[in-house]
Design a binder for these strands. Structure first.
Lengths: 340, 340
DNA sequence: GCGCGGAACGTAAACGTTTTCACACGGGCT
DNA sequence: AGCCCGTGTGAAAACGTTTACGTTCCGCGC
């Protein structure tokens, strides 16, 4: 059995209350006894039992992160951003991921109960009904990249629309007229926004009827297939904008296989700026999502909610910006353009 | 305030004991009352308070992961492997990373106290003294890729030595005679083992005095510089084996910049098999570390320790295998060879 | 000299569970 | 009929903290 506050109290000839006060620096203890208690505690290697502590303080110094998956660069970065910000505030992070269905997500949510001070939720299953059903009203929660449009919950999104629109406009600015878009999983909220950005940029250029949307599912293979499809079209597109980098990379393979030159014949662009994007040939133009920043922002928002529980005026839904990263694959001059 | 077990008991006209029994399925409750209690609990959206529960059960259903950093593909994969295995057992994961020094690591360790059933530790600060000082003896712990050679703690390592040796032997088998090795940070345990594998493979081929070790620090730039250095040597190496993929990629840039052909003039190989390795030109031969598997194995080992606390015979230190991934950059035929 | 206030410390309640123990009850056995 | 045992239930202790509330003691002002 582990050493408890009582052991320390006994060894130091004081009551448990004094030990608690001394160790937490709450005052009401002589400097002398405080010192003695501290020494005894150190000697006994006393470490307070956090479960007991948070049972009574109702604080856990921990935030929960509910994620759909842990695969890939995106989540890795997101977690990193969250952890960075959490660490700066002395908070810990309880992560739960890979829940295939809503039931699993619900179980995970319950398991967080009484273990976290707040929740960061990024889950495809987190629709409004699900949240109402499984979320205790009292637990501060921030939704990340959710399609839920409720203002009962705080939410934080990536500016998918703006990024996609900027990239499309950039391609148009380079003189490309027939720009195809490779979409991702239909249910995906990000994809929808990216597609909207693409369409509206075309519309603004008076090319609304020129939109070409090819199916995809975020994998390299689907990008490859979409590339083949694009090559078979007449007239052939002169640019391909993929909803994520992996598909863009697959598309590049299809083009190089067909001896079609990039960017001379067909420009290619992606979305995300995964580390690999810089190393493929030609280096991939893309829209950089500042994912770590997203995680940090989400955590900071959550902390604000935790500290001011009854903030009457919830902050508006916020978006974190993107950057246009221009490399060789689209034929522009290399550049990074930060967007709000 | 949140709804507690007492509220459920009151509403269902039973004692809290019965509620506990009914909800945990411990028996000793009529099917009928059990049903009634369950209904009331559901209606009230009762969720047990985990801190209270684990205070008395002394189980948290959570394992802690102490990591040095969250950056890069390695940790992303590791976390993913851990999470996968944890999830399969209904365990949660409390992660703590980015502690710059031993003090921070110690604080993190204390914070885990009473919140986790076991610990996965992968930290440069985790030397033996540190562990003795900060680890309560009772807490099951598995060390990952640690240089600590104590058998007081369970440990799990990547077979850096075997992987490096296999790659070196492969290069030798392809007829390369002057193989240079780009090292990583000196303090790094993995690097030392990889270097040892390289040296011993050479020694076994009677080429012990042909070892060429260039400095590096795991970054792309350091690989680039090492590449330059190698090019300046006379006689020039006919193969370069980098201690990780990023350096190998930097090295590739240096070679292509100097119009040196890979693999014809100089073969190149890396270590890790990061996703990018497949996409650089030429595709990089490398040693694949099954990181997710490492995470899973570590967790499974930890679970075994938790379930059998006083296992007199601690299992021997285990290693997880590597795979030789042969791609174009070393001039062999594409292949993946799994090694124990 | 007496009361009063504050500082230092102790006692005990509280947090929300699980679990041990005791109790009541009914039915099958001798 | 009496006994015993199993089964369902409740009361209460326990887990390790924090903190509200007492108590003691000392110094100070009147």
């Amino acid at each position: 059995m582990s050493v408890t506050i009582k052991d320390v109290a006994r060894m130091a000839n004081v009551s448990v209350a004094s030990v608690s006060r001394a160790l937490n620096g709450h005052g009401g203890v002589t400097a002398e006894t405080q010192k003695r208690i501290r020494e005894v505690a150190a000697r006994l290697r006393y470490v307070p039992h956090n479960a007991a502590r948070s049972l009574i303080t109702r604080r856990t110094q921990t935030i929960g992160a509910l994620l759909p998956d842990l695969h890939g660069a995106f989540f890795s970065e997101l977690i990193r951003g969250i952890d960075l910000a959490a660490r700066a505030r002395g908070l810990y992070m309880l992560v739960s991921s890979s829940h295939g269905d809503a039931t699993e997500a619900a179980i995970a949510l319950r398991a967080m109960q009484g273990r976290v001070d707040g929740l960061l939720v990024m889950s495809p299953h987190a629709d409004e009904a699900f949240l109402d059903e499984n979320l205790p009203i009292v637990l501060p929660t921030v939704l990340i990249n959710s399609h839920v449009r409720s203002d009962r919950h705080a939410a934080l999104d990536v500016d998918d629309y703006g990024g996609a629109r900027a990239m499309t406009e950039h391609l148009l600015g380079l003189g490309r007229k027939r720009i195809a878009f490779i979409a991702g999983p239909e249910v995906n909220h990000d994809v929808q926004e990216r597609c909207r950005g693409y369409r509206e940029a075309l519309a603004a250029a008076g090319l609304a009827d020129r939109a070409i949307v090819l199916p995809g599912d975020f994998t390299e293979e689907s990008g490859y297939h979409a590339g083949k499809q694009a090559l078979a079209m007449v007239p052939r597109p002169d640019a391909i904008f993929a909803a994520n980098d992996m598909m863009a990379i697959g598309c590049l393979s299809a083009l190089s296989e067909a001896k079609v030159r990039t960017p001379e014949d067909i420009a290619v662009a992606g979305f995300d700026d995964i580390p690999m994007a810089r190393y493929v040939t030609p280096p991939l133009s893309t829209v950089r999502v500042r994912i770590a920043e997203l995680g940090e922002a989400a955590l900071e928002r959550l902390v604000r909610m935790i500290e001011a529980p009854d903030d009457a005026a919830p902050e508006p839904r916020t978006v974190v910006g993107t950057e246009l990263v221009v490399r060789a694959s689209c034929g522009g001059n290399d550049a990074v353009r930060r967007r709000a």
